[in-house]
Amino acid sequence: MRATVEELSAKRPVPKAGEDVVCLEGLYKSFGPLKVFDGIDLKFRYDQTTVVLGRSGTGKSVLLKHIIGLMKPDAGRVVVFGRDLQELDQAELENLRLRFGMLFQSSALFDSMDVNANVGFLLYEHTNLSEAEIRKIVREKLDMVGLKDVENRMPEELSGGMKKRVALARAIAMDPQIILYDEPTTGLDPVTADSINDLIVKMHKQLRNTSIVVTHDIVSTFKIAHRIVMLHEGKIILDETPEGVRNSTDPRVQSFIRGDASLEAVAAKKTGEEK
């Protein structure tokens, strides 16, 4: 069950830069009467950071959960590293997940374990590293997210922002090739938020991986994104470079990046007239 670090890296071949590592093909998803995805086609390249924007409740978290296989689409395929998730068996899926890191919107720390066990979870479960080695890596990762001397605390003794950062440390514990960040800066003060942005940029420089970041934070977006996509009413309505987004004339996009609801109203009226 436990593997050496070499065995693990054999299970995680490094893709070429620019290779499409995540492909969403014709994704449809509904929860009862609520249609969340209405035909989504997206590709995420290796060595690229993509920010996913969208209003609250448009399905950004659901999108990330499809990419890592926590949810299954009603129709369409999710292809990761060239493999269709639907066709993988349990063991293959677990191997695949060792190449992922996911930061949950709600942090989702294990509240029966202390911070050390949370951050080191993957290392304890899947490697044969010694306790001391794992503790060292955990300290390093906590240091990266700006936390010190919290290893022995339980999650309930942490503030919301600290939980988020511990969860981030857990997500990056094994240097994943695909990192899914669900609102990494929500609930943090501006200074910490900025250091998290720096961290995302730094992680990317260091690992050259695929980062997919869901956020509402426009400042962060322009700081970290190579590419920005926007989800609206079940469809991708924007897929641009940050430059392209700044120059976009779509009122739905402009209202979002300026935080101006009146533009949204204009957009709604306009689409109404078109119909």
Binding site: K65, I68, L70, E94, N95, R97, L98, F100, M102, F104, A108, L109, F110, F121, L122, E125, H126, R170
Partner: peptide
């Protein structure tokens, strides 16, 4: 869900 994503 977090357990699942951590391959446990």
């Amino acid at each position: 869900d977090a357990l699942t994503t951590l391959a446990a």
